[in-house]
C-alpha cells in the first residue's frame, strides 16, 4: 500500500521516518488487538447467538482485545455466518473489499464451511471460499463459544505471521 506524504513534508526525511515508524507501531498494535466485524449472510441466528455468547463475561473474548465493531472499515477480522444467500452475496463481497489489509476471514458454522443443510440449494453460494478467500474454518451447528474463540486465536496467529512476513520484506 502506497503512503502519500504531504508535498511540503516530502523532502523532509525525518518526518517521513517518523511516519513510517508510526505505521509500523500501528501494524504491531493491530497484531495484538484485532477488531472484528460480523457479517450475517443469511444465517439462522444460531451462530450469531454463539458469537454474542463468546463476548459474555463467561467466555470473554475481549481478553484478547477482540471487539465487535459496526463497520468493516474498522475491522481486521471478518466473522461470516450463514450460507451466503444470493441476496447477501454482493454485500459479503462489498464488506470484504471495504476491510483494510491485512485482514482475516473466519467462516463460523457448518453453512459457510461446507454448505450445511443448504448444500444443494440453488439460492445459496456455500461454501464461502467460492466467494471470498477464507483463512479459518470453524465447523459446528452452531459451534460452541470456545470453538469460535479457538478460531479467533488461530486467525490471530496467522495475522501475526502475515505482519512479520510483511515487515521482513
Amino acid at each position: 500500500m502506497a503512503i502519500t506524504v504531504p508535498a511540503n513534508g516530502g523532502s523532509n526525511s525525518p518526518e517521513l521516518e517518523r511516519l513510517e515508524r508510526r505505521i509500523a507501531q500501528l501494524c504491531r498494535f493491530i497484531g495484538r488487538s484485532p477488531w472484528v466485524f460480523h457479517i450475517n449472510s443469511g444465517s439462522c441466528n444460531g451462530c450469531d447467538i454463539e458469537i454474542i455468547a463468546a463476548l459474555t463475561p463467561r467466555y470473554d473474548a475481549e481478553r484478547f482485545g477482540v471487539k465487535l465493531v459496526g463497520s468493516p472499515r474498522h475491522a481486521d477480522i471478518l466473522l461470516v455466518t450463514g450460507p451466503v444467500t444470493n441476496q447477501s452475496l454482493e454485500r459479503v463481497k462489498l464488506a470484504y473489499e471495504q476491510t483494510p489489509e491485512p485482514k482475516m476471514v473466519i467462516a463460523v458454522g457448518a453453512c459457510p464451511t461446507g454448505g450445511g443443510v443448504f448444500y444443494e440449494s440453488p439460492f445459496t453460494n456455500a461454501p464461502l471460499d467460492r466467494v471470498i478467500p477464507v483463512d479459518v474454518y470453524v465447523p459446528g451447528c452452531p459451534p460452541r463459544p470456545e470453538a469460535i474463540l479457538q478460531g479467533v486465536v488461530l486467525a490471530l496467529e496467522k495475522l501475526v505471521e502475515k505482519l512479520k512476513g510483511g515487515s521482513e520484506k
Partner: peptide, 14 residues
Amino acid sequence: DFLLASYDNKADRF
C-alpha cells in the same frame, strides 16, 4: 470433540 477450528475445510480430520 468440539474444538474443530482449522485453516482448511478439507483437512484430514474432516
